[in-house]
Nucleic acid binder design. Structure first.
Length: 417
RNA sequence: CGGGCCGUCGUAUACCGGUAGUACGCGUGCUUUGGGAGCACGUAGACUGGGUUCAAUUCCCAGCGGCCCGACCA
């Protein structure tokens, strides 16, 4: 797309009401707009990134048999009363409201109740299990205090998947399969090497749950990392018994701050029991499916990627989620030949199926470069009198800053990969 | 939910109990053109409501909004 047509612009100064780096940079670069504390709109650039993150998550969930659906945001109170979670004493961050007829309703912060209820219509037999269903849907939590920019908002996008298995063993297999899918997701997002499967408290039905924690100084969680085993332990369960279970010693662990980018949890039959979800086993007896839930906050992940990769010049996106693959920058100073050449290259890249942002604006070179750094597209292609006289295109890598001269064909080939 | 700080052009900031200034942005013109240009002219502002005062953007109170620390955080 031509940058002159993009309705957003960059700003030089950070908004005074944001302290978090992710929000400052995302607002300065025109990715998001703050509506209220903890509530943000995703602008064209931001939506592109969010969609790419969602696509990666979607692909990996589909690969392990997840089936996508979308559940309503408005909630049926009856379902939540059956599990005891309608109560404000139990769940203190509900957004509750009423229908015109006076009936209570609310905005979903998670979806165990509705998905379990839906499955009552379809899961009848052991032969129907296991099943995995997920959605990528806006969630609402009336946080006492929003903070950390888009990383802890009152409205956020989350992929939430739920599994239904016929036995504890079957559940374990599903659970591990999803855990592996999570590892792949974080690898594809470029944070695999700094994201640890972290043991956390499990609740009634299993000893542990697992969080996926991405190391970052701004993280809200404290974890203890075991480099050798590539695992970590959440501070809240750093106990002798846990160390014993995992076969590690306190001395081997390193304390780190981390951002929780995903979590997986065994639910046992808490929800299937409460909502009456049952299936017939082989011997004709009835049993409740063993459930699991698997969350990834995709809008939080977007913020986490900014936090982890940004440098002093601005955002640095991993290739897998960048809003565009290439940022074509024309330094023309009104020179018609340069404009013609940049236009030609723009068409070539587009025709080759490459997502390109073309800075065709009539502004000075310094402003273009500064904006390009701020926006953070991985590859910058510069066309100017200088590059034309040297017979090529200047290619700049946003992350390393390395530059080189390349020909059209090479660029197309490299970016198509 | 406890504690603290703060609301000034679109953005970022300054000053002040008596005429609200600067930078960026935006508009016009000229010059400039590989790292957020220069000059000139122009555009645009005190969150809301009370109170004190001859006079309030400034002081006081309340509301609304924002940020930070802590608590909380399927």
């Amino acid at each position: 797309m031509r940058q002159s047509e993009l309705f957003t612009k960059t700003r030089k100064t950070a908004p005074k009401d944001e302290v978090a780096k992710n929000a400052q940079l995302l607002i300065r670069a025109g990715y998001i707009h703050k509506e209220m504390a903890g509530v943000y709109s995703f602008l064209p650039l931001g939506l592109r990134v969010l969609n790419k993150i969602n696509d990666i998550v979607r692909e990996e969930m589909n690969a392990v048999g997840g089936q996508e659906l979308t559940m309503s945001v408005l909630q049926n109170k009856e379902l939540w009363e059956k599990t005891g979670r309608w109560s404000d004493e139990v769940v203190d961050n509900w957004f509750k409201t009423q229908l015109k007829n006076g009936a209570d309703t609310s905005l979903a912060f998670t979806a165990e109740e509705p998905i379990t209820n839906i499955m009552r219509d379809y899961l009848n037999s052991y032969a129907d299990l296991p099943k995995l269903a997920y959605q990528i849907q806006w969630k609402y939590r009336n946080e006492e205090r929003a903070k950390s920019g888009i990383m802890r908002g009152r409205e956020f996008l989350m992929k939430d998947m739920y599994s239904f298995a016929g036995s504890a063993d079957e559940h374990e297999k599903v659970y591990e399969k999803v855990a592996e899918a999570y590892v792949k997701i974080f690898q594809r997002l470029g944070i695999g090497d700094r994201t640890y499967r972290t043991f956390a408290s499990g609740g009634v039905f299993s000893k542990y749950s697992h969080e996926f924690q991405c190391l970052s100084p701004i993280g809200e969680d404290t974890i203890y990392v075991h480099e050798g085993k590539k695992i970590a332990i959440n501070k809240e369960v750093l106990l002798p018994e846990v160390l014993g279970d995992l076969g590690v010693t306190q001395e081997e662990l390193v304390e780190q701050k981390a951002i929780e980018v995903g979590n997986i949890f065994s639910l046992g039959t808490r929800f299937s029991d409460a909502l009456g979800l049952k299936f017939k086993q082989k011997d004709g007896s009835e049993a409740a499916p063993v459930m699991g839930c698997y969350g990834i906050g995709t809008s939080r992940l977007l913020g986490a990627l900014v936090e982890v990769f940004a440098d002093e010049k601005g955002i640095v996106w991993p290739e897998s989620v960048a809003p565009f693959s290439a940022h074509l920058v024309a330094i023309s100073s009104g020179n018609e030949d340069v404009i013609k050449e940049a236009d030609r290259l723009y068409e070539l890249l587009k025709d080759s199926g490459i997502d390109v942002l073309y800075d065709d604006r009539d502004v000075r070179a310094g402003e273009k470069f500064a904006d390009s750094d701020l926006i953070g597209i991985p590859t910058r292609l510069v066309v100017s009198e200088k590059t034309m006289s040297e017979g090529g295109i200047e290619r700049v890598d946003r992350q390393s800053g390395s530059t080189g001269f390349v020909q059209d064909s090479e660029v197309v080939q490299q970016l198509q990969k």
